[in-house]
């Protein structure tokens, strides 16, 4: 046993202990989603379903078109993520590297949009979307979030840490700002871009209040609105609710797992970072 081994063992022990705390609610949700009603009611502390059943999952899909809801959420989240990446890269580059009048003020104005409780903006936002004829449409779900201050702020912070030398080399080669962004900043920022994508995608996927307000028809409902079906005033149907939660969380987890690998690859390719 070298000192290295001991440190590693401690590392793993800490990580594992933390992981159990973090995972417990998930384990419990997963286990509940396979439980029969009797089990949920009479064995509330049972760690395993005594008689595992798929009936909650079947019932989730039979009560509502969950497939369609998943598709809607996918379209909205992917569209929002793509647009936010474009708008954030462009403006973050300008804020981080260009000099122009009003830079700090405009940046702060952008930031200010996050500081107002979003709930109060919902009604005026709804009025705008309706006047643009985008009620109950994908555009109406996506466009209001095609740019957010969070992504811009995050990327600006990241861009500012990229060494000037890289950029200077490109300028000497005669590259314009768009090309510098495309060939220098974006490749160097893969970890940051992966991080933003995941956050935006997840945020959009989990958004509840905005779709609730602007979606009218069953065909346009997103997955979070679908989950709300199982929470009514008369109580919650835990088995089905948990099955729905599992179904709605799984896609983002898979996405994160993939992005997380991408993120490691991005670093080794650029060769500048450990």
């Amino acid at each position: 046993m070298t000192k290295r081994h001991v440190t590693l063992a401690i590392k793993y022990a800490v990580l594992a202990a933390g992981a159990i705390i973090m995972l417990f609610p998930f384990y419990w949700a997963l286990s509940t989603s396979f439980k029969e009603l009797r089990d949920i009611y009479f064995e509330p502390y049972g760690m395993f379903p005594t008689n595992p059943t798929f009936s909650n999952y079947i019932s989730v899909f039979s009560k509502a078109p969950f497939g369609r809801y998943l598709l809607n959420s996918l379209v909205v989240a992917a569209g929002t993520t793509f647009l936010q990446l474009v708008t954030a890269c462009l403006s973050a580059y300008a804020f981080a590297r260009m000099r122009f009048r009003g830079r700090e003020i405009i940046f702060f104005l952008f930031l200010a949009t996050m500081m107002i409780p979003q709930q109060i903006l919902m009604i005026p936002q709804y009025l705008v979307v309706m006047r643009l004829g985008m009620g109950d449409t994908y555009q109406g779900l996506i466009l209001p979030y095609a740019a957010t201050a969070v992504s811009i702020f995050f990327l600006r912070q990241f861009f500012r840490t990229i060494p000037k030398d890289f950029e200077d080399a490109a300028i000497i080669d005669g590259c314009g700002p768009l090309r510098i962004l495309r060939y220098v900043f974006i490749p160097l920022s893969k970890p940051a871009l992966a991080t933003i994508s995941i956050f935006v995608f997840m945020w959009s996927w989990n958004n509840y209040f905005w779709p609730l307000l602007i979606v009218d028809s069953t065909e346009m409902r997103t997955i979070q609105l679908g989950l709300a079906l199982f929470r009514t005033e008369g109580g919650i149907q835990w088995g089905e609710f948990m099955a729905g939660t599992v179904i709605s969380t799984l896609p983002i987890l898979i996405l994160y797992f993939i992005a997380q690998k991408q993120f490691v690859k991005g670093i080794t390719l650029t060769g500048m970072k450990g």
């Binding site: 709804y126 009025l127 309706m130 006047r131 609730l212 307000l213 009218d216 028809s217 069953t218 009514t232």
Partner: peptide, 26 residues
Amino acid sequence: VRANYQGTYDETVTKMKSALLVGAGP
């Protein structure tokens, strides 16, 4: 008749009131 679930009673009120402001709604 196309039936659309709008959420709880309270949520439905909010939606209807907002929709009526722009002449929309069910």
